[in-house]
Design a protein around this nucleic acid. Structure first.
Length: 490
RNA sequence: CGGGGUGUGGCGCAGUUGGUAGCGCGCUACGUUCGGGACGUAGAGGCCGGAGGUUCGAGUCUUCUCACCCCGACCA
């Protein structure tokens, strides 16, 4: 059997393939760089989707859907966007197949060439803003607060399961506003929603901040991100929110009449998170026994395992577990009674741990006689035997406790791996030790690039809460007003 | 697209100087087991990624090709 590696290992992909795929989350498909998300993995995504969707609606957003195909010419409209997305896209050039005259299956019909190529969306700003032109005429039409759940395609040169697949699922919010202030508020609000979700549901602490010029989204005036630390000390960008200024409105000629009757260009934001969040979830919490899922996102909260020697013992055990199951379900928990008689209890234990199910309940003849039940928690692997009567409350309390504990653990890990560096040597040593490094930077893209070339570290963000502090750039010695977050990143 | 590496039963791998494929896990059947991935016995399962070449004979040598993995460039 393949060795199970931790995400701390150098070769994290090995860990992914051996552990995560065994945990039934995903596998790579026959299509280059794409992934098949298996049912259990998709159940996690569905839960994430549902929670986020509720949060978007609570902040006044509505869902809509725009086409998968975008005319190539749309990408020529916004100069910076062209820079960022003119490359690495899937392009549709023909619309028909025909039988191979040589009898070898089918070929692309050369007669069926499209007049204008279609791009499979890598992101939807262009087609959405082209549409918004028809939706917006007056300040009364604003704001437009729309979100889309969709798949997008980016023909990445190198793909990684969950973190960078050629096709991925995501949501993209695209909002239109009458003023720059309102759009900037929206950008801030949505990065806040993401931070809330990732910290309070995924139990992964994040650092919220602004991207530098170099790392900013193509076409954005300002980009905010949340950055999470994985167990190998590397950073993962978990979500972004952009203030697009009037760039796309100008590119697609979207104007509105303001209260004074004057025409103005519309202000825009866009924001998104993707199935990459599943990668973050996995890499932030898992251990050598498999996944560790936060209760708020676990497809199954509690799994029950009856333990017996003879078949005659089964009905009594199952009846007792069923009774507890109903109580737990009435408390809002998703419970699975694993009464398979084809595998042994030890096998089930290992399998459920691999899947990260937060709590396991085991009941055997000894428990039944004593009126007790064994309750095991996935995060610490601790077991306790409690009275059957007390089990319901103990398990309900454990959900909150596990949710809290894994967040605290992840946060403590990050704290222990975040250091200040004041010299370049300190900086490099800290990076090699798998740390987030807070350091001074002179504010130029040239220095940022230089540091990246020399150390592979990038500025993940300028944290929102970074205090003013006079200092000198670790690389050039030029003055700096605050520390920024450096890390090696996925 | 550059630089490395790997392709052999479902999975992980071995296969010597070329001689006609093996191991572990898994799978099937039966029995004993069942409180942390059980054990025994008996089975099933592979034209060795693909195409060509050398040879009496190729998993092995050779040419081409394809796929996947890792490191870069690119990126959520």
């Amino acid at each position: 059997m393949a060795k199970v590696l931790t995400p701390r290992a150098e070769n994290y992909s090995q860990w992914y393939n051996d552990l995560v795929v065994k945990a039934d989350l995903a596998e790579t498909s026959a299509v280059r760089g794409c992934m098949v998300i298996k049912p259990y993995g998709y159940a996690i995504w569905e839960t994430m989707h549902d929670v986020l969707d509720r949060m978007f609606k609570q902040t006044g957003h509505q869902n809509a859907y725009f086409p998968l195909f975008i005319p190539k010419s749309f990408f020529s409209r916004e100069a910076h966007h062209v820079e960022g997305f003119a490359k690495e896209c899937a392009v549709v050039t023909h619309y028909r197949l025909k039988n191979d005259p040589e009898g070898k299956g089918v070929i692309v019909d050369p007669e069926a060439k499209l007049e204008e190529e279609l791009i499979v969306r890598p992101t939807s700003e262009t087609i959405i803003w082209n549409t918004y032109r028809n939706w917006i005429h007056s300040y009364r039409d604003l704001p437009i607060l729309v979100n889309q759940w969709a798949n997008v395609v980016r023909w990445e040169m190198r793909t990684r399961l969950f973190l960078r697949t050629a096709e991925f699922l995501w949501q993209e919010g695209h909002t239109a506003h009458a003023t720059a202030e309102e759009a900037m508020e929206e950008m801030n609000r949505m990065i806040g929603v993401y931070a809330d979700f990732v910290e309070n549901y995924m139990a992964v602490p994040v650092i919220k901040g602004y991207k530098t010029d170099k790392e900013r989204f193509a076409g954005a005036v300002e980009t905010m991100s949340i950055e999470a630390m994985m167990q190998d000390g590397k950073a993962l960008q978990a979500g972004t929110s952009h203030f697009l200024g009037q760039n796309f409105a100008k590119a697609f000629d979207v104007k509105f009449a303001n209260r004074e009757g004057a025409l103005e260009y519309v202000w825009a934001t866009s924001w998104g998170v993707s199935t990459r969040l599943m990668g973050a979830l996995i890499m932030a919490h898992s251990d050598d026994n498999g996944l560790v899922l936060p209760p708020r996102l676990a497809p199954i909260h509690v799994v029950m395992v009856p333990i017996y020697q003879q078949a005659a013992q089964i009905p009594g055990l199952v009846a007792a577990l069923q009774a507890l199951k109903v109580k737990l379900e009435n408390r809002g928990l998703r419970v699975k009674l694993d009464d398979r008689d084809t595998v042994k209890p030890g096998f089930k234990f290992a399998e459920h741990e691999l899947k990260g199910i937060p709590v396991r309940v085991a009941l055997g003849p000894r428990d039944l006689a004593a009126g007790t039940v064994e309750i095991a928690r996935r995060d610490t692997l601790e077991k306790q035997v409690v009275d059957m009567q007390a089990a319901e409350q103990v398990i309900v309390d454990l959900m909150e406790e596990i949710q809290r504990n894994i967040f605290v653990k992840a946060k403590a890990f990050r704290t222990a791996h975040t250091v200040n560096a004041d010299t370049y040597d300190e900086f490099k040593a800290a990076l090699d030790g798998g740390n987030f490094v807070m350091a001074h930077w002179d504010g130029t893209s040239e220095t940022e690039e230089l540091i990246k070339d020399e150390t592979k570290a990038t500025i993940r963000c300028i944290p929102c809460d970074a205090p003013e502090e006079q200092g000198r750039c670790i690389r050039t010695g030029r003055p700096s007003a605050r520390r920024v977050l450096f890390a090696r990143a996925y």
